[in-house]
Amino acid sequence: MVGIVSYGTYIPRYRIVVDEIARIWGEDAEVVKRGLGVEQKSVPGLDEDTATIAVECAREALRRAKIDPKKIGAVFVGSESHPYVVKPTGTVVAEALGVGNEYFCADLEFACKAGTAGIQICYAMVKAGMIDYGVAIGADTSQSRPGDALEFTASAGGACFIIGRNCIAEIEGTFSFTSDTPDFWRREGQPYPSHGGRFTGQPAYFRHIFMATKGLLEKLGLKPSDFNYVVFHQPNAKFPMRVAKMLGFGKEQVRTGLVVPYIGNTYSGSSLIGLASVLDVAKPGERILVTSYGSGAGSDSFSFVVTDKIEEFERNPTVLDKIRECEFIDYGTYVKFMRKIRR
């Protein structure tokens, strides 16, 4: 039985509300909030980046699992905001965790699905008997051009999943759907990503999530009603609700894992923090479906079945606790924190 042995999350404590961003750029905040279903987003502090977020969520996961860090055989950090273009984030993380030197490591990049890509790789490595435990992290301090629509949602956060045997949630199956679809990208040397506007919808987000999820359901012979919870990549609150409906899931199944209204789109952390908030309340025997989406484009779909072990597993502080613990900042502070202004 291979699956999630432990998990941890990190959300920076700073928040900026949509109204504040809209005020600066002359947008109608109510229209934006209604359109995106997002009220506010998380902002990293001046001393936080993808590496620090990755370490903090991974430390929480290690603490909860009470695993000797030396038993970790692989570390994958998925992000589209790695602090270095060349030099892995993963080695910083592994060093901070005290993994030692005998481990496999690589950074992953696949827009917002690099974290779930790490889970799939760890799953395969554990199943193949190559490693006992693998660490998969999705973390980002996502960038957005000032005034761009992305600025309302692009946020920061991360989640870590330790994959191994003796787990709190078994991976029942996984299925990926991938194509070359340039809906969102960032070229070498460019500070901010570009996107195809409405093109990011139907041919990108919806097609890939729909096909990956459908493929997984068919592979496992399951139907939407077999799941207690479903988590989709959440660039805003509307998209996951709509794709859920397209696939035949109800709003109630989506709600528990929908964190984007309060913290924004944490990119590589997005679907994973959603999964973590479901695990925070899940009971043994419950089934969870997760489908990520990464621009460029692809989706990884997973079915998890919660085991009895979750009952004695330490789940505090929960994602909800971290959502609540926040400090609001204005746009000036936000651009300083994001290094959008330089001295």
Binding site: G45, L46, D47, D49, A51, T52, E56, Y84, A96
Partner: peptide, 20 residues
């Protein structure tokens, strides 16, 4: 203790991390 960024060797240099 938390893991945080301390600074960097300029824009082109390495990033310093440590414990706050």
């Amino acid at each position: 203790a938390v893991f945080r960024k301390f600074g960097e060797d300029g824009e082109e240099g390495i990033i310093h991390y440590g414990t706050k």
